[in-house]
Every structure is written in C-alpha cells, then in structure tokens.
Design a protein around this nucleic acid. Structure first.
Lengths: 358, 358
DNA sequence: CTGAAAGCGCTTACAG
DNA sequence: CTGAAAGCGCTTACAG
C-alpha cells in the first residue's frame, strides 16, 4: 500500500510540488489562480492525500505535538478530565497530545528523562501536571520549550500555572450554607498541610466573616482525608451537646464518612444536619444518598487552559512573563444537590430521637 | 539555543556521521573498533546529543509513536488505568503514546477522522479502546496499520482484542460466597443487555451449578446500573420472607444502593446479609463501610497488553491472524474486603429485628 | 573497520 | 502566477 505523497498530487494536478504545498497550506502572500487551486484540491482529495507530519515537522522544526507530563495523575480519579480537556483543546488547534506519566516517587531524575524524551520528539510545548496542588521545582529540561503547569506552582516563578481557586469555591459553598440559615458550621479538614487544605479553610473562614459569624475554632477538626477520617471527625462534632447544624467536609470521601457518622447517630441528612463536600468526585457525590452538594474542581478547564496558553506561548506571545508571575486561578463551581437543608428549628437536646417525638 | 545534531557529534569524535549512527544505534552486522565506539559515545554524551526522532522517523518510516483512540473513555473513572498501562508499556519499548478521544456519540465519521490524524503522524500502531465491552465495526482507516482493540470485539474478526473475563471473575466471586456458606444468593443485574451483563450472570450461574445449587430465577432481578437501581432491586430481594443471605450486585454502584437498602431494613452487613459488587471502582469499593468485596477489572493489564501486542505485530509477528480470531481474555481478580460473612444460622422471619432478640 | 552519498517528504526562500 | 532547488537530520545500501 504505497501512500500518496505531495509529488503524486503535483503530477495529477499538472503543477509543481511547490504549488501544491502553497495551495494546501494556504500560504500567506502567495497568489495562485483560482483554477489551479481548484485542480490541486481536487487532485488531493481524489487521491486521499494527507501530508506526512513527520516530514513537515522536520522541515518546519515543529512537531505539532504537545506533551503532557503527569505525575501519577493517571491513577487519580480526576486525571481523565484533565487529559480530556487538554486533548480536545489540542485537537481544535490541530495538535496531538502525547502523554507520559511518571510515578510521584520516581524522583527528579525520572522526570527529567521524561522531559527529555518529549524534547527529542520535538514537542512544541510541554504541560506538567501534578496530582496535588503543590509547589514544584520544574526540571531544567523544560526551559528549552514553552511549558505550563497544572495544579502546581513553580518555586522559581518561571513557568505559567493554573490552579483551582479553592478558597473562592469554599467560600461560595459556605455562603450557600449560610444562606440556608446555618450559623454553626463544623469543618472537618484534612490533617495534611497542602495548598488545598489551607485554601478551603481560608475560603470557609472568609465566608463566615463576611456573614458576620464569629469564628469558633472548636468547630474545626481535622483527620485523615478519607472516609474513615470524615467519619471520626464528624462523629465527634455531631456528638456534642451543641452540635453544628451543618458540616463542611474537606473532600467528598470525608463526606462519605460523615454520612455514616450521621446515620449512626440517627441523624437524617439534610433534615437534621446538612453535609457538604469538595471535589465533586465521581461516582461518590452523585451516587451517595442523599446526593451530595459539593464543589467541582475544574479539571477539564485546566487541561484546556494549559494547551490554549501553550499555543499562545508557542506563537511567541508576550504574555509569558506576566503569566509566569501570576498563576491563573480557575473557578470551582458549587454543585448543588440534596444534602443541604435549613437548620433544625428546635434546639436539639443531643439526640435526634427527641425530634421524632415532637 | 542551537541543538546538537549527529554532525556535531561526528565532528567532535573525528568520524563520519555514518559511524556515529552505527555506534549509537548499535546497528547489527556492523563492526566498529572499540576505540572509535568509545570516542563517539563520549562525544555524544558530552554534547548532550539526542537524535531527532522526526528525522529518524521520516527516514525509517516509523514514528516510534503509538496512538490510543478512545471513545469517551477519558471521562470514565477507569480510563486512567488503561492509559497508564499502555503508557508504561510504551515507555519500556521506547515508544510514545498519543491520545485522541472522541465522544461515543460523535459517530463513525469523527472516529475515522481521528484514525486518519494518527495515520498522518505515522503512528506505528493504533489501539482502539471503548468504554464498554461491546462489538464495534472498526474504521477502515485502521486496516492500514497494526491495530488492537481494548474492551471491544471487531464484528468482522479482523483485529485482535483483549477483553475482561467477566464470566470467570463472576464465577470466582460467587464461589467465594458459596464457600462462605451461602446458598440463596440474589443477583441484581443491570437491565441493559451488554456483554458485561451477560458474562457476569453466566459466571454466577456457572458457579452455582458447579456447587450443585439449583438455579432459581426469582432471585435474579434487574434494574438501572446505578446506586438507585441497586437500591430498588436489593430492597425488593431483601423484603421477601425467604430473603437471600447474600446479594451479588452487577457493579459497585449498584452495591452502594444495596447497602442503603440493607440499612433501611435494619440489616447489618455482613452479619445479616453479605453484599458483593463488581468493578472495584475507586473510591467507592474502598470507602464504603464496610469495605466492599468485589472483582477488579484488569484495566492496567489490558492497556499494557495492547501495546505489547502491538509491538509484536509491528515487528511482523505472525500471530496476527490467530490473535484476531481469538480474543484474549484477561483475568478479573476477586478483591476480598469486608462485606462478606457467613449466612445467618437462624431462619429469619422477615425482619432482622427478630435476630436482635435472640 | 569506515565513509560518501542518496533519499525519506515536505517547506520556503528565490528567481522568473 | 508558478517552479527548480536547497535543505531539515537522520539511516542505510554500497563501496572501499
């Protein structure tokens, strides 16, 4: 199966390969008679010609490929959406997405080797995405090409980054709770100190302040960022005499545990207590009963932003410096479902059985 | 930043580029003195030379890239593991993985365009992965290159495929239930008819037969393959006078609903009823309480198999025909956690409250 | 054991 | 408005 090349099209159209190249690429500043153009296009489509990207890349020194370097991300549940956003944006720019994953603990050397591989293949740009929102020291290899970061910020401030705006997302979520009437809101935080932990708490506190609700640190309890941690923390919170009427869980997995704690205490969600999570993690948030009100992380959008920004950088946009020094924050939308209701009107005595007897 | 080429290495080592190419590629049937080889290697590493894959690809008519064509798969929770398996296997063969995703409903035309794009870039092989185990008609474009299918079987039997061995996985899971002492096992199936639905039921039935347990179709009830469907089906099953002592749910999401049904009936898992799922879907299976005994889908393995097989095909292996006509089945391992226990010893009266009074 | 040379399939000054 | 020719950076017969 001999593949058809530009030469075949030229011959069929009775023109030179130069002309074929010009008309097919619509080279600017090139005049070609309409009749020739038509002949060329007809010949090309008749022969089913499609240019060899390798040859073109060799000549133009650009591969039309962008590399996505991930750090264990393919194993996290969110990964798919980052990849999807990046891939679709890439397609729309006629770019191909190549993926390389290294394990988080593989170390800097592995990451540099991966970067090098992408460079050998003449990636036009590289996206570096980390599992958790954190600070990284970008491999020097990436200095050689346009690069952007997803979910991480470069300690040296040399490469543009997108980050989820956790604080605003959290603030909006808390505001929703406040709007429903809650004033005593528990917060079960993750005990590991990462930007997400800090950001979510900050947003929560900010919304409280804005609503004129006094900060009460006894309402903030932290634990493992898993269902088990959420269970323990929420159990503690809801067992108090003056238990909160709502609890904001650091993430959806913790919220799963919070549901169990509430059930064990005989508390009905959202009648007796409102629960909210963060991450909009599939399939938990939707599948749990009642379905969970939470905030979504903009993975798709960050993926798309990354390649959109990269294409600007590749085209030599002058935003580079500005972008590098000002991380882009992506909004995290609140997803309202069914785990929030108004607070109980009656002052509960410590146990919801009382309510049932009203 | 002028990048270093083979010419620079040749000059530095005082040899021809031919020689550089031979020593660096370790071309077979080529004698080069050890001293020359050493000089070349030193020069190459000193200059930080890495070959331009585009140029090499143009010359050798192979890009060293393999394409992964997915069908909405990046949006499914499992996707990451397929990509990861494929990517790691690709790395080990010095291949790069390019990903293109099309929406399931984008139609055949979109898929063909995607295949074409991969071919323009001279993908050495293409993997086509579908979201759900099903039959597909492979785009003709794929006939031009080695191709394999993940999770789907080609209606025309022309391309090799890997599929999860759902039946065996299900049989093993049911066998585990039987081993625990269960003889009345409910089965909540998905009401949509796909290979997975059929395979899981077949495996279940096979294990029952093997254990000498009479088939009782009243124990098989189907519904939506979501938590809500599992809830309804399980509620029905467990409300019967002679309720099953265990229920096998078509998937983990249905199992989530089953948990809720059991809780509502006051049935404790696994004391009063055992529940098992299928998919080992993160983060449900682990996070739910008690953690769910289920069977894992071999996504990583299928991804790795796909590229391993592709490399054999690319090298002209003669297995092609055999592989095309015999889909490869990948084992689905049972993952034991905490949702299975022995059946209740007492004959229940219809309501577990009775048990509590023993 | 080593090298000169052709050629992979394009794009792009440059000339006409 | 159109084309001849150089060249991107490699690999690979082929000759010596």
């Amino acid at each position: 199966m001999k593949s058809v090349g530009i030469r075949d099209v030229a011959k069929a159209a009775g023109v030179s390969i130069t002309t074929v190249s010009h008309v097919l690429n619509e080279t600017p500043n090139t005049r070609t008679s309409e009749s020739t153009r038509e002949r060329v296009r007809d010949a090309a489509s008749e022969l089913g010609y499609s240019p060899n990207r390798l040859a073109r890349g060799l000549r133009t020194r650009s591969s039309g490929m962008i590399g996505l370097l991930t750090e264990d991300i393919a194993t996290t549940p969110h990964a798919g959406r980052i990849i999807l956003g990046a891939q679709e944006e890439a397609s729309s720019h006629n770019l191909t997405l190549a993926i390389i994953n290294s394990h988080v603990d593989a170390g800097a050397a592995a990451r540099r080797a991966d970067a090098r591989e992408l460079i050998e293949r003449h990636a036009d740009g590289i996206i570096y995405a980390t599992v958790f929102h954190r600070e990284v020291s970008v491999p020097v290899e990436l200095r050689a090409v346009p690069a952007v970061l997803i979910g991480a910020v470069d300690v040296q401030g040399l490469v543009p980054a997108v980050l989820p705006d956790e604080a605003t997302g959290a603030a909006n979520l808390t505001a929703l709770l406040v709007a429903a009437g809650h004033r005593r809101i528990g917060f079960t935080n993750s005990s590991v100190d990462v930007p997400a932990t800090r950001g979510r708490l900050i947003g929560h506190l900010r919304a409280l302040a804005q609503a004129g609700i006094a900060r009460d640190d006894s309402l903030i309890v932290s634990g493992l960022s898993e269902a088990s941690g959420g269970y323990a923390a929420t159990l503690e919170l809801l067992s108090r005499r003056d238990r909160p009427t709502a609890v904001f869980c650091y993430n959806d997995r913790m919220a799963m545990g919070a549901y169990r704690a509430a059930a064990e205490l005989g508390l009905h969600i959202p009648r007796d207590v409102s629960i909210v999570g963060f991450d909009d993690q599939a399939p938990i948030a939707e599948s749990i009963h009642p379905s969970l009100t939470t905030v979504a992380l903009p993975h798709y959008e960050m993926g798309a932003w990354a390649v959109a920004t990269l294409t600007r950088l590749i085209q030599g946009s002058s935003d580079a410096w500005y972008l590098s020094t000002h991380p882009t924050l992506m909004q995290c939308p609140v997803v309202e479902r069914h785990s929030v209701g108004p607070p109980q009107l009656v002052k509960s005595i410590s146990n919801s059985a009382t309510d049932l007897n009203l």
